[in-house]
Design a protein around this nucleic acid. Structure first.
Ligand SMILES: [Zn+2]
Ligand SMILES: [Zn+2]
Length: 812
DNA sequence: AGCACGCCGACT
DNA sequence: GTCGGCGTGCTC
């Protein structure tokens, strides 16, 4: 029998291996196996298919079966296949994204001296002698390390020569030995009766500790259903060590077994929420919609109680003993959120994010596969769609409009929300997309009736919407009345809040505002040598750094272009704002919340706690302050520059600006008092700003939808980006011109470009981009097939074939 | 994607 | 003459 195995490679195919006869019985789809690929490399792969079709080439055998059970379900394999096709990548790439790192195995070759062979050192060539000498010192080492130690670029030819002569041995070392936590437990053997026998006592009368251990076992084993007692408990009760325990096991008085460590017990203290009238109506609408639809959209304004609806359904699933997935953007998965779910669902909740350690992720996966330990509620980021659900009934995608749900690098470039919907299709589960500012796509789907729809338009009683005001900073800028980035209106409002002992949040957009060093004489700024990027200043390391490739230099003291020493740091980042504001308000307690300030573990939570306790008056933050945090007593929210949000050269810029500003505004005065939101802008009359100040989501939606239709964007057209990369600009240009020409022949004016990507050169490679706009109604699979065919044509040309081609389906 | 093999320029 | 550059082809 043969097995087609998925390997962790960007190759659009599986590889067929022979199943050793003795394993034929236990071979199944979804098994993790160790195989050799190429000359010596070993990989762990997943069995996709088992069959009897003998291939026309010699197959290699499967070397090991890695686990007791298949670690990937049949449903997951089909799901992987769908994702690979839709996002135009290999199943190996999907597998890489899906599996916890602890399941991945990859070998490295190690060299060691052949102890059998007498070596005549005179016979060795120079380079061989260097290797030999090194191996006398260290008995074995990886080939890559050997190369580094000897400072050789390619040590392999020498090693191969020495291997052929028999001087050295080569072994494959499979790295990666992360295991889930286990513990030993013991039981009184089955059939020995209910209690300790006199017989046992007699035989152990000279072994005092062993008798004590047995007594302790019977004292500790109170659970009739479960005879196993943890080793740690036994040792603690008798104040002994492992050796008497071992003796008991050897003599057969106790049985030993290894168990996975049980997660901490957490009691659920909250029961299903009582729904308000409007929530009950929404639930009723959703239930009706789900009768014939998979997905429903819940449009609920801030503080209207979307979460109660989510919890209502999750409670329902738990009662049915079925699984639910609560998906949130990674940035919103805060300790606050975890606690809130645990108060409702106790230890039935498990979180799954990239912030977990390899072992923790492995443990979640293993629990999902074990019917006895299966968690019922997964709170997770986008990657939780890859978990081995066995009985998924309900999926929430909270903040469904969030663009951070889209994975970018590496492939598969999947959208967490869309992938969750497909997953739900496979499970015949229900999906609830929730947002206070739904995406144009989802809202359109709801309008068209593709999605069910429910809304919550009323806030909890007593909660009033903040007053949102646009602050025109054109005049102030011309009249030089701005204090740095602060208009007199904003400063006054901040001072006012501080007097009232209220808190202030200031929002500065993250992107494009990192500080840069600019020559005041000629305007020159330091560029990365590998990328088309201006180096930005990092305070921590006191360096100028490229955030694409990591290239960094010390800040220059004079301009490299004109030699002038008049260099000035310019930027609008949170650091700068903090400094400026501290000068204006020396007594205010100001803190920053951005990626830099929260990089250290727990620093985020500490900031949140301090702000909550009132130890900080003003919190200056990026996108981070907008998501998932709920502070009391915030009287004022200031958005320092709306223009940067509105002026992005992306088709979603306006939609996103609306969403972000609304979300930030929602941080003001959520309890009792009415808060104030000030939006500074050079274009205070901009439609989007007007719509934010008047809370006109519907109007924004209609206008944006019209724009999308007119300019051929989603939800009326689907986009595919084809990105081509090569070190030589002529090579990419030629190849992309050729491909675009071919594609125009098929798709006509649906093809745009090629153009240089927004950042034309990254890590020394030039990037060119072709955009395909496919109207709804055209078969996407057919389009993709034609596209693949044309891309394959690049292989027939000696220069075009050198170009790497990447796809991004539904780019954000 | 990685990795081995093979054929040409610049160094001992 | 050897070293090592990369272009070419293959991996079950
Ligand atoms: Zn760079
Ligand atoms: Zn200069």
């Amino acid at each position: 029998m043969y097995a087609d195995v998925i390997l962790p490679l960007a190759l659009n195919q599986t590889f067929t291996y022979g199943i050793p006869v003795e394993w034929e019985g236990q071979m199944e789809r979804g098994r993790r196996v160790l195989v050799q690929f190429g000359q010596r490399k070993l990989y762990a792969g997943i069995v996709l298919r088992i069959h009897n079709e003998q291939p026309g080439y010699d197959v290699k055998p499967i070397l090991e079966i890695e686990d007791e059970i298949p670690i990937v379900t049949e449903l997951q394999l089909e799901y992987w296949r769908w994702l690979a096709e839709y996002y135009m990548c290999s199943m190996g790439e999907v597998m890489n994204a899906a599996l916890p790192a602890a399941f991945k195995m990859q070998s490295e070759t190690k060299v060691s001296r052949n102890p059998e062979l007498e070596v005549d050192e005179a016979e060795l060539k120079d380079d061989e002698f260097q290797v030999y000498e090194l191996l006398l010192e260290l008995d074995s080492l990886r080939i890559s390390d050997l190369g580094k130690k000897l400072n050789w670029k390619n040590p392999m030819p020498v090693i191969r020569r020495m291997y052929a002569e028999g001087y050295v041995n080569l072994d494959e070392e499979v790295k990666g030995t992360v295991k889930s936590k286990t513990e030993r437990r013991y039981r009184w053997p089955e059939g020995y009766g209910e209690e300790l026998t006199q017989d046992a006592f007699d035989q152990l009368k000279r072994a005092k500790v062993q008798s004590e251990l047995l007594l302790a076992y019977f004292k500790l084993n109170t659970d009739k259903e479960n005879p196993w007692v943890r080793e740690a408990d036994l040792l603690k009760a008798t104040d002994s060590n492992r050796s008497p325990l071992k003796a008991l096991v050897e003599k057969g008085w106790l049985e030993e077994k290894v168990f996975p460590v049980e997660p901490e017990r957490i009691a659920a203290v909250e029961s299903a929420p009582t729904l308000s009238d409007q929530q009950a109506l929404a639930v009723q609408n959703l239930n009706t919609a789900w009768e014939d639809k998979i997905t429903s959209l819940l449009y609920g304004v801030t503080s209207s109680g979307k979460t109660e609806i989510y919890f209502h359904y999750i409670h329902e699933c738990i009662e049915k003993n079925r699984q639910s997935l609560f998906m949130v953007p990674e940035i919103a998965l805060t300790a606050q959120m975890v606690k809130r779910l645990q108060s409702h669902f106790g230890d039935k909740v498990v979180t799954y994010t990239s912030r977990l350690s390899d072992r923790e992720r492995l443990e979640v996966w293993e629990r999902m596969l074990d019917p006895e330990r299966r968690p019922l509620v997964i709170l997770g980021a986008r990657s939780s769609v890859f978990l081995p659900f066995t009985d998924l009934d309900f999926v929430v995608v909270d903040e469904e409009h969030e663009s951070s749900y889209k994975q970018f690098d590496p492939a598969p470039r999947y959208h967490g929300r869309d992938a969750a919907i497909i997953l739900a299709h496979y499970h015949k589960a229900r999906v609830l997309l929730g947002s206070a500012t739904p995406s144009i796509e989802s809202y359109q789907n709801a309008e068209e009736g593709k999605y069910g729809y429910a809304e919550l338009t009323k806030r909890y009683s007593g909660i009033r919407l903040p007053v949102v005001e646009a602050v025109d900073i054109r005049k102030e800028t011309i009249r030089k009345q701005m204090h740095g980035h602060f208009s007199p209106r904003l400063l006054e409002a901040i001072k006012d809040q501080l007097e009232q002992e209220k808190k202030v949040i200031l929002f500065q957009n993250r992107r494009g505002f990192a500080p840069v060093v600019i020559c005041q004489n000629c305007g020159h700024s330091e560029q990365c040598v590998n990328c088309d990027i201006t180096l930005t200043y990092h305070k921590l390391s006191h360096q100028l750094r490229c955030h694409y490739c990591g290239y960094s230099i010390h800040p220059p003291t004079k301009c490299k272009s004109c030699g002038s020493v008049e260099l000035k740091m310019q930027g609008f980042g949170t650091e700068k704002i903090e400094e400026d504001l501290q000068v204006i308000l020396p007594n205010a307690r100001i803190a920053r919340m951005d990626l830099d300030a929260t990089r250290k573990k727990n620093s985020f939570q500490k900031l949140v706690d301090r702000f909550e306790k009132g130890e900080i008056d003003i919190l200056i933050g990026t996108q981070m302050v907008a998501k998932g945090l709920d502070f009391e007593d915030v009287g004022l929210v200031g958005i320092l520059s709306a223009d940067s949000l509105l002026n992005y050269p992306e088709f979603r810029a306006h939609e996103r600006a609306y969403q972000l500003m609304s979300q930030v505004a929602g941080r003001a005065g959520r309890r009792e008092e009415r808060g104030l939101v000030l939006i500074q802008s050079f274009q205070p009359d901009h439609r989007i700003i007007q719509q934010v100040t008047t809370y006109s989501f519907e109007e924004m939606f209609r206008e944006q939808r019209a724009d999308r239709k007119q300019f051929h964007y989603p939800p009326f057209y689907r986009l595919i980006h084809i990105e081509m990369r090569h070190v030589k600009v002529e090579v990419v240009s030629d190849a992309s011109d050729f491909l675009a020409g071919r594609l125009q022949g098929i798709f006509g004016k649906r093809v745009l470009g090629p153009e240089f990507a927004p950042i034309a050169r990254v890590r020394g490679q030039y990037h060119k981009r072709i955009i395909l706009k496919i109207e709804n109604g055209l078969s996407l699979p057919k389009v993709k097939k034609a596209l693949q065919t044309e891309v394959k044509r690049l292989d027939f040309h000696k220069d075009h074939r050198k170009v790497r081609v990447y796809f991004d389906v539904d780019p954000v």
